[in-house]
């Protein structure tokens, strides 16, 4: 039904690399689900049903990983290096860390600002900008990575992790402020 030994990229027939054609990925994902989803095996035997469930879950997992820039980077680094903790170590870039601290501080003070939602929006825009820069660097680094490139990529993944965590917090805060409207 599905070759479980394939990596996430191979599952979708995509080249192994950080640049992913999002539309093509989504299209291949749907084509696979169309074929593998348990709804297609409603009348089949238990073994096939079970297999379809596993295959469909695997395709969901691969899709979630590849469509998210952070997860994709982490997965790609671990594919190249063979270890599973792609980017779990912390960045040592003090300027970057200081900036993150400032953003978090700004976030915690948002409520006392005259236009809290606007202020969160600004922070979110800023984070989106940071994220884009990091993703852009990762695209270049992970094109045909040397061991040094992979080391550098790990550091970027760690930064991207900071940015997306801060983004989740900002979004939660935005939701909370929305609720108060």
């Amino acid at each position: 039904m599905l070759d479980f030994s394939k990596n996430h990229f191979e599952l979708f027939g995509l080249p192994v690399g950080y640049r992913v054609d999002g539309d093509l990925l989504a299209e291949r994902y749907r084509a696979l689900q169309h074929r593998l989803h348990p709804d297609r095996y409603a009348a089949a035997g238990d073994r096939e049903k079970r297999l379809s469930m596993q295959a469909s879950a695997r395709v969901n997992e691969a899709f979630q990983t590849l469509r998210d820039p952070l997860e994709r980077a982490r997965y790609l680094v671990s594919l190249h290096t063979g270890d599973n903790d792609g980017g779990k170590e912390m960045t040592q870039d003090m300027a970057f860390l200081a900036e993150q601290m400032e953003l978090r501080e700004a976030l915690s003070e948002v409520r006392s600002r005259p236009d809290p939602i606007g202020a969160v929006g600004e922070i979110l825009d800023h984070l989106a900008g940071q994220s884009n820069v990091l993703v852009g660097k990762l695209e270049v680094l992970l094109e045909a990575p040397s061991p040094q490139d992979l080391e550098a990529a790990r550091e970027l993944v760690s930064k991207l992790q900071f940015v997306s965590k801060c983004r989740v917090e900002a979004e939660n805060l935005e939701a909370e402020l929305d609720e108060l409207l």
Partner: peptide, 8 residues
């Protein structure tokens, strides 16, 4: 809001 089926 994770798409099912899913295995984690």
């Amino acid at each position: 809001n994770t798409t099912i089926p899913v295995a984690r």
